[in-house]
């Protein structure tokens, strides 16, 4: 089971710490100030007192999202918009296979780039190694641990050891602005 929380945020960087505490306190039913959160040497936050609760957070300029699971998890979100440096970044940092996937057709290259990019980010965040893991050393196209979906103008990827299926509401609990999207 993966719990996903999404919220609009005017200042995601300032809210990131608050947001993490809020979603964890909702999940664990404990006071947010009692949560002892530390970071690994690679910068991945973890709960000292709940080693079997895994969480990860991502933000854009105006949106913040978090995922909590009983398995290691990584989440990444990007706003879908044209980005002038995509092609160069892909050439320099993505695998040949991923580049071929992105550029084999002229339409929707930006979208396919973001699909691959968010999958990469979710993977390294799941692995807990941050940017220490060189992006061109692993391929994310056929990795069953990673799933990607779209919500409005945002693209999300999640990497988890759990079997996950976006269409299966037994796999997910969504919380958007404190209200389940299924309600």
């Amino acid at each position: 089971m993966i719990n996903i929380y999404i919220e609009e945020a005017m200042d995601p960087k300032m809210k990131s710490e608050i947001f993490i505490r809020w979603i964890l306190s909702e999940y664990l039913k404990v006071d947010r100030d009692e949560l002892n959160i530390k970071k690994t040497k690679y910068g991945k936050p973890y709960l000292v007192d709940y080693p079997y609760v895994h969480f990860n957070v991502t933000h854009t300029k105006d949106m913040i999202a978090g995922a909590i699971s009983d398995n290691p998890i990584g989440i990444d979100m990007e706003r879908i918009k044209p980005r002038p440096h995509n092609k160069r970044i892909a050439e320099k940092f993505l695998t040949k296979n991923e580049q071929k996937y992105i550029f084999h057709r002229k339409d929707n290259q930006d979208l396919r780039f973001l699909e691959v990019w968010t999958r990469k980010e979710a993977y390294v965040k799941w692995a807990g190694l941050g940017m220490k893991l060189s992006f061109d050393t692993f391929d994310v196209l056929d990795d069953d641990r990673i799933i990607t979906t779209f919500i409005n103008e945002y693209i999300f990827s999640i990497c988890s050891d759990c079997f996950i299926d976006w269409k299966d509401d037994e796999s997910f609990s969504f919380c958007f602005n404190e209200k389940s999207v299924y309600e």
Binding site: D11, T60, K61, H85, I89, K92, F93, W117, E121, M131
Partner: peptide, 21 residues
């Protein structure tokens, strides 16, 4: 990383590419 509101790692990768090019 701290002064740019919309900073993310993709911008970092873009900077690395720009310096190279």
């Amino acid at each position: 990383r701290n002064d740019i509101e919309d900073w993310d790692s993709m911008k970092g990768f873009a900077i690395i590419c720009m310096v190279d090019d």
